[in-house]
Nucleic acid binder design. Structure first.
Lengths: 241, 241
DNA sequence: GCAAAAGTGTTTTCCGTACACCCATGA
DNA sequence: TCATGGGTGTACGGAAAACACTTTTGC
């Protein structure tokens, strides 16, 4: 198995990803549990290759964890504090997982790679949750969707990172009108309203919301959606282009 | 003289600064000319020390170039393209400045330091231009304020960087109400209006602008400003706290 | 026909803009 | 007392919110 130190990754920079999905009228985020003894939850992270554009790096990292490409992305913050608790976390992980070999581990290249100071570039992604196949690997032992108000305690300052991403999303949803990326290709206005109400934690008057969204002039009307429910069938919409 | 390679700077990350000032009813930016033969204009940049918070690094870089501390800062973008023309610029600089020693230079540690790929973190600063003492050094041979619509052609993609900073400022001026940082500690509402009109390139109705600004509830009214002009003296204001 | 939800049109409210007015200042 | 620019109150118009009304669907 190749070690992380074998690749030509940029030193001292990494990418932290907050992946948002929407399901059962809930905004969710993809949280990983490390493949070690102990409750070490984290956000998907990764490094940038020597000759790789940073956006490509994010897409690559997201593809590895979700199996989808061309994900909607926004950079939301840089995490540049020199001490973000990375060493403390690693020492805790090691003490729970290694005993006699502890010193050997502590001196390894890998330990040095992971404990060195990094500047983290924060991105959030908006995905169609039904398209995602959470894909664990040797490090991320499991990956699960957690409702935004029920995120486990994560390592380091990742709970704050997620919070910052959510704050940016709340602003961007109106400025960039990007919430549609949380839905399947075709959707109804009601579904859009659910997303908005969920993210912004407020309710909208149905009729006015419909106008507000359609006046953005970014959707095209498609066929009606017959669900068998005994009421008028809503139109499906899709992002223009 | 110590070389840049002597310090414990983080590899592959740097900081690009757009420093905005306001003077003579013009928004200006501080642009440096490199201390080499040729027209190499650039924005002030710098690196981050191993154990230094990134915001501290920006403040340090700004202090070195302007002589002021605790500057108002906003991160506006990450420049993460693998190729931003850095090597091309350095080769041009070398070919204009070195002849026989060229190969020697090209192989030096310094050349390798400067040509390696970096991820740039973009910050813009808003300063009281009257407090700034542009401070050249061995690299930045001169530093001058240029009106925003008359910026010289800079190296690499720095003209685009400046443009991105300006775009963010135009959004932030309303969202974050941060334009006051371009003025001295005490200022009149008219001066604020000049700043807004200059940045947003539109004119405001005086009376409504006054209300708009005062309703932000971020200013405290101080004494009147008697200029000797034969009209009613305006109040001075200052940011609360 | 009826209940439920979608879609459209109308009224009302509110906020931003325009503007009228008064005030202070120094010649 | 006049010209100039500063400060405050009011009236208007357009957009957003509230709401009334019509349409579609399946039982």
């Amino acid at each position: 198995m190749p070690s992380i130190t074998d690749f030509n990754y940029l030193n001292h920079v990494n990418i932290d990803c907050v992946i948002f999905g929407f399901e059962n009228n809930q905004l969710k985020a993809l949280v990983a549990k490390l493949n070690y003894k102990g409750e070490f939850y984290t956000l998907p992270s990764g490094y940038i290759l020597e000759d790789e554009d940073i956006e490509d790096a994010v897409q690559r990292i997201l593809f590895e964890r979700t199996g989808i490409k061309n994900v909607y992305l926004e950079h939301f913050k840089v995490f540049g504090k020199a001490n973000r608790g990375r060493k403390e976390f690693l020492d805790a992980l090691i003490s729970e997982n290694y005993t006699s070999e502890r010193d050997e581990k502590s001196n390894s290249n890998i330990y040095r790679w992971f404990t060195k100071r990094v500047v983290s570039i924060g991105y959030y992604a908006l995905v169609d949750i039904s398209k995602v196949t959470p894909t664990p690997n040797e490090i991320y032992g499991s990956l699960e969707w957690y409702p935004i108000d029920n995120i486990p305690k994560m390592i380091m300052d990742f709970n704050l990172v997620l919070n910052d991403a959510l704050k940016s999303l709340k602003v961007d949803i109106d400025v960039k009108a990007n919430a549609f990326n949380l839905l399947p290709e075709k959707f109804t206005i009601s579904e859009v309203q659910e997303v908005y109400e969920c993210i912004l934690q407020k309710s909208y008057v149905r009729t006015n919301f419909q106008k507000k969204i359609l006046e953005l002039d970014v959707l095209e009307r498609l066929e009606k959606k017959y669900t068998g429910a005994k009421n008028k069938a809503p139109y499906l919409y899709r992002l223009k282009n």
